[in-house]
Computed example of a mutant assay.
Amino acid sequence: MRDAGFNIIAAVEYNPQIAKTYMHNHPETKMFVDDIRNITTDEIEKIFMSQKVQCDIIFGGPPCQGFSMAGKRIRAKKSFLKDERNYLFKEYIRMVEKLRPKIFIIENVPGILNYNNGEVKQEIFETFRDLGYVLDAQLLCAADYGVPQLRKRAIFIGNRIGINPKILFPMKTNSLNNYVTVRDAISDLPPLDSGTGQVQTNYIKNFILTSYQQRMVSKSGIVFNHLSSKHKPETLKLLSMIKQGETMKDLPEKLRTKSVHSGAYGRMVYDEPAYTLTTRLNTPSVGRITHPVQDRTITPREAARIQSFPDDYLFIGDITSIGMQIGNAVPPLLAEKIGRNILNIL
Rank of each mutant, 00 (worst) to 15 (best):
Q294E: 09
N108I: 01
N328W: 05
K121T: 06
Q214L: 11
T276Y: 01
I157C: 02
G197Q: 04
A154F: 01
D311S: 06
K82L: 08
N178P: 14
I74N: 01
I112R: 02
P16W: 05
Q244L: 11
P332L: 01
R37P: 11
G158C: 11
A11S: 13
G71K: 04
M31H: 08
N225D: 13
H231T: 14
K52P: 11
D188S: 15
I289K: 04
V96K: 00
M248P: 04
C55M: 08
Q244H: 10
K78N: 05
G339Q: 11
Q200L: 10
I36D: 00
M1C: 11
A143Y: 07
N116K: 06
R37G: 09
A274V: 03
L88C: 03
T278D: 13
M23P: 00
A335N: 12
R256P: 06
I8M: 14
G287A: 12
V134R: 06
L281C: 06
F89Q: 01
G287N: 07
Q17S: 12
L88Q: 07
A274T: 08
V182E: 14
N114A: 09
P16Q: 10
P310Q: 01
E234G: 04
F169Q: 09
K172I: 09
T29F: 10
D318M: 04
T279G: 07
H26P: 01
K82C: 05
V260M: 00
D83I: 07
T257Y: 03
Y275H: 14
V134S: 08
N202D: 08
C55F: 06
F156P: 08
L209N: 05
K102Y: 15
L346Y: 11
I319E: 12
V217N: 07
P27N: 10
R100G: 05
M1F: 11
N206Q: 08
R160Q: 09
L113V: 00
Y212W: 00
K98D: 11
P63N: 06
E45T: 07
A19M: 08
K30R: 12
I289Q: 06
I342R: 03
Q198K: 09
P310I: 08
N177L: 00
